[in-house]
Design a protein around this nucleic acid. Structure first.
Length: 652
DNA sequence: CAGTGAGCGAGCTTCCGCTTGACTT
């Protein structure tokens, strides 16, 4: 009997089906060894020797792997083909304590063919790649476990800093400052509605002013706008040019974790956590491929299946001459898995036995994948340039008509994005008749705050964080009270800003947007054998250690600004009431603390009456661990508490 | 899941990345 060890239990099940009786398959369910949680676990004086120990929660799994490993003739370490997977393979070999019968195999897609190829080509564990993982792990631990305690001392207890989370907070803080510094400016868009002299009334069209005297039109005031509108109202209009061309629009590439959570947020309004948990269920039921991935790769089988399906279902016109493969854009992508796709393209929907949300996400994944193997959609685009004289005004209209839907057959265009604009037939030098002319006053808008989707997109673009950590990172920065989400948009708290300024002020290099990219370059050199991991860490840590020492000695404790309520303290009648953030969320107290100890509850109402006492209001509260719950405003008289928001009363 | 902040100095907090349940009190 031979044993194959993979990371995901679902993957183990699937592989089991491909194989005959001479193989058994077990799963590690992720890492089985890690640095200890309760201490640093790195001997910084002894070449950064890391203390990788069995993870307590994985005790049963480790036991099982050991016993199965003992019985097996050959153990194939088939963990994911990336840096973390190589480390897991090493850890499995370590616990089996027998490198003579272990072999490393790798494959990038879960097909019988790929598995057989891998089994025919076993090799050794790549020690350099394992070293790169150690360097990554040690660096993250040093940043997190050295800087967090500094925050406890200099800001407040329980705070945290990390290579990823602190940059996520930084993005949100800096966006907020951009918004605060933003000055809205007035501008005007000016239009004329015209029609050809010989044309019917229905063939009128609208042109927009784009140039004045050969220069781009920039109209910043009502006075300027009125002058132009008056000119245009008296002007003669003539077609200067008509340009037509055919434009094709290619489909989107298949989903990765990042683009899937973005699409689900945009279309369904889901949080990344919710999307990922629904995707997990679909994956476990064998309906989709693995959902934590940064790769656009598609198995040959899947692409062939899609091509057959497209030809049969939609016809030859929709099928490209050759299969489409997408190149992963991200430099830091690890490409261990395929893109996210349905496992069987003939299954168009999973209605019936599934919760509704599962089906919605499934259909989104199905159509994105199917579309990616279809022909581009084709449009006739028309641009009409119109001259208005006197005054050297250039106005323009753009039209677009879809003449072949292509992949849009399965992902119909939303009207606002890809709508049809029909323009009448006019010819060059044709005179046009003015119907009316007008201006729209507009104001430039401040940059948009991040939502989950745009934050993930930005982090991915910067190469910071991984598919498995996007959703957890977003919860961490909220649980720590660094940022708040209101109507889906993130803004920093006073604590978030204070911690951000402290970290960036004292450790500018680590929280630079480019830091992770630089780290990845170093890790690549470790993986290639060009340099040793201990050297990389030493070079990083020695200056950091020194800096931590001086900050510890010299930096003053950070004062966190409080939000004033504009009311006097009812107890001492001297201080002012302010909102503070404690371990249990917001509360109101006297600004003269600790001289005056007055406090009162901060009520964040849900807008629903207490279902228990029927007198108080339901309010949002936080546990000491940051989890939200709902309680009664009359606590402690009324002890109502619930994890779920009570139902709002139906209004007719 | 029921009291917060400062500082007292008992013992504790904290990272990222890989993978799933066990909890819905």
């Amino acid at each position: 009997m031979n044993l194959i060890i993979v990371e995901s239990p679902t993957k183990a099940k699937t592989l089991g089906k491909f194989l005959g009786g001479e193989y058994s398959v077990e799963a590690t369910a992720g890492h089985i060894k890690d640095l200890p949680k309760s201490k640093l676990g790195i001997d910084v004086e002894n070449n950064f020797k890391p203390d990788f120990a069995d993870i307590p929660k994985k005790k049963d799994i480790i036991k099982k792997l050991k016993s199965e490993g003992k019985r097996a003739k050959v153990v194939y370490l088939a963990t994911d083909p990336d840096r973390e997977g190589e480390a897991i393979a090493q850890h499995v070999q370590d616990i089996l304590n027998s490198d003579s019968k272990t072999k490393r195999i790798t494959f990038h897609e879960i097909t019988k063919e790929a598995l057989e190829e891998a089994l025919a080509d076993p090799h050794e564990i790549n020690g350099n790649l394992v070293d790169a993982q150690i360097a990554r792990r040690v660096l993250d631990r040093l940043v997190g476990y050295k800087l967090s305690p500094l925050l406890w001392k200099k800001v407040r207890r329980g705070l945290s800093a990390g290579r990823v989370q602190s940059v996520a907070v930084r993005l949100i803080v800096e966006k907020e400052r951009e918004i605060k510094a933003f000055k809205s400016e007035e501008y005007w868009e000016i239009f004329s509605e015209v029609k050809g002299r010989t044309e019917e009334e229905k063939n009128k069209f609208t042109v927009q002013l784009i140039k004045v005297g050969g220069k781009t039109a920039e109209i910043k005031s009502k006075v300027d706008a009125d002058k132009i509108i008056s000119d245009l109202g008296k002007a003669g209009y003539k077609v200067l040019d008509v340009r037509k061309k055919e434009v094709s629009k290619a489909p989107y590439p298949p989903f990765t974790t990042s683009t899937m959570t973005q699409a689900a947020a945009r279309i369904f309004g889901w949080s990344s956590k919710r999307t990922m948990s629904i995707a997990q269920k679909l994956y476990e039921e064998g309906l989709i491929t693995y959902h934590r991935t940064d790769s656009f790769n598609l198995s040959k089988q899947a692409v062939e299946g899609a091509r057959k399906f497209i030809e049969k279902e939609y016809g030859k016109n929709y099928l490209p001459a050759s299969p489409k493969f997408y190149k992963t854009a991200s430099k830091v992508a690890q490409e261990a898995h395929e893109a996210i796709r349905p496992t069987n393209i003939n299954r168009q929907s999973i209605t019936g036995h599934e919760p509704q949300d599962g089906n919605r996400l499934y259909k989104l994944i199905w159509s994105r994948f199917t579309a990616c193997q279809m022909n581009p959609s084709l449009y006739d685009e028309t641009v009409i340039d119109v001259e208005a004289t006197p005054g050297e005004y250039l106005l323009r209209a753009g039209g677009q008509i879809m003449k072949f839907d292509g992949w849009r057959k399965v992902i119909p265009a939303r009207l606002d994005v890809d709508g049809t604009v029909r323009l009448p037939e006019v010819s060059k030098a044709e005179d046009l008749k003015l119907i009316k002319t007008w201006g729209d006053q507009k104001f430039t808008l401040p940059p948009a705050r991040y939502n989950e989707a745009s934050l993930i997109k930005t982090l991915e673009k910067l190469g910071i964080g991984r598919p498995s950590t996007y959703a957890p990172t977003i919860s961490t920065i909220q649980v720590r009270n660094y940022v708040e989400k209101s109507e889906g948009k993130f803004s920093p708290t006073t604590i978030g800003e204070a911690v951000n300024d402290f970290l960036i002020g004292n450790f500018p290099d680590i929280f630079e947007y480019k830091f992770t990219a630089g780290m990845e370059d170093d890790l690549d050199r470790v993986a290639n054998g060009e340099t040793k991991w201990t050297g990389v860490i030493k070079e990083f840590f020695r200056p950091l250690e020194k800096k931590i020492g001086t900050v510890d000695k010299k930096a003053k404790r950070v004062k966190i600004e409080t939000e004033k309520l504009g009311k006097k303290c009812p107890e001492c009648k001297e201080g002012e009431l302010v909102i503070r953030l404690g371990r249990f969320g917001k509360f109101i107290s006297c600004s003269r603390f600790p001289d005056c100890k007055y406090t009162e509850k901060y009520l964040e109402k849900v807008g629903v009456g207490c279902p228990e006492c029927k007198i108080g209001d339901v309010i949002i509260k936080k546990t000491s661990k940051g989890r939200k719950f709902f309680g009664c405003s009359r606590y402690p008289e009324c002890k109502y508490a619930s994890w779920r928001s009570p139902k709002k009363e139906e209004k007719n």
